[in-house]
Design a protein around this nucleic acid. Sequence first.
DNA 1: GTGGTCTAGACCACC
DNA 2: GTGGTCTAGACCACG
Lengths: 127, 127, 127, 127
Amino acid sequence: MFIEIDTSSNEPIFEQIAQQLRFAIASGAIRPDEMIPSVREMSRMLAINPNTIARAYRVLQDEKIVFARRGMGLVVAPEAREYCRRSRKELFVEKYRKFLDEAIQSRLSEEEIREIVDSTPLRPEDQ
Amino acid sequence: MFIEIDTSSNEPIFEQIAQQLRFAIASGAIRPDEMIPSVREMSRMLAINPNTIARAYRVLQDEKIVFARRGMGLVVAPEAREYCRRSRKELFVEKYRKFLDEAIQSRLSEEEIREIVDSTPLRPEDQ
Amino acid sequence: MFIEIDTSSNEPIFEQIAQQLRFAIASGAIRPDEMIPSVREMSRMLAINPNTIARAYRVLQDEKIVFARRGMGLVVAPEAREYCRRSRKELFVEKYRKFLDEAIQSRLSEEEIREIVDSTPLRPEDQ
Amino acid sequence: MFIEIDTSSNEPIFEQIAQQLRFAIASGAIRPDEMIPSVREMSRMLAINPNTIARAYRVLQDEKIVFARRGMGLVVAPEAREYCRRSRKELFVEKYRKFLDEAIQSRLSEEEIREIVDSTPLRPEDQ
DNA sequence: GTGGTCTAGACCACC
DNA sequence: GTGGTCTAGACCACG
């Protein structure tokens, strides 16, 4: 599976799992109507307690990204891809907005902020 | 005082206080050799538990941004302004780097990321 | 067949099937001495696991609504229609009683409850 | 406390707790800006595992009925009362609608349904 | 003291 | 096999 957990991150494990599944759906790696790995399977794959997996899945169910088919497992909702794409976009717009707001609130000048943004390459290894 | 606390933010209160003091020093609003308000005073002003203020001050002391002058209270260190300016810059470089890394890890394309950055104005109200 | 299953409802599938058969008998759509579809047939028609169909049928057998006739399959019992009519009535009396009890327990006033009941038309599209 | 748990109900305990708190807020028994009992306190009062209480509280936080003040506890949101009143009303409108739909779908005649509704007193002990 | 996360293990109904 | 709930107990950061 394409999910990687950083157990020492501040980000809760259940949230990392939910987020990566959202991204996987947004990018088409998991498609609508497909099932996601069962709680127990995912638990084995990631070596994470099943309760934690279940909690991640509950979050996705609450967002209606995924729904339960009784006794069968969890299925990606038909509209989930569009929803995940949109919310991913919004998430990063919001993150960038927050970054700017904090920079302004820290009394960095506009020039200094522009310089930071302009001099940082998209990919870290680039110069 | 120019400090504003959001008691229901995820950012710890002591960290909000320390950060805003660092920024105030970086921008020159508080200058080297000036005193910062006493724990009690700050506690009253912000309506925040004195322990929390004390913890914020401890953090700043550990960073040698402020130091105790006997019988006087806490004073901003001579080199603090430069230090705060530099670390503020580094902080935001790092924040921006993290933003980009997360966007890439979410499988957003480079074009999409560029679009977000380019279409967001520095100041929220501008378009 | 006139049975419709919602595989992602909270109502167990076997219970949905049993209930709809009871109602079909109560209303005369299936009459005493008639056979109900075999497990396999029903399983194919509804695209539901045969075990689940079998369980629904077991429930109906336990209630003596239907009984096995050797080599023939399951047959609706002679007294089943009356029984289903009566229990259907009781079921809905009980459901309505439960609705009222919950509304009272939620501290809705009697006026508010009356208003809900009075302003809701029997058929959804009516106003 | 005015909360009562039926541990043998099908309704999950955490949902019973969340629901009764919503109702308590809707009816004004708990007011905006007040704190709700701490997880540990509620756990002691109801003799329910703290995790279960925490889950109930998490549900309410997700609905923004209640929010955390760091290190302090959970506070009822300012708009919560109106929100709870409205959603309580909607909940019971919907429950009644569902009752009617099921009754119709069971092929009860309109007369039979009306009779059930008309002959059932609001309070059980009344005749 | 507060809430939050995580693990471990039990038990349930359903398919 | 599936998900869901609950208990118990540990650990953490925050105030």
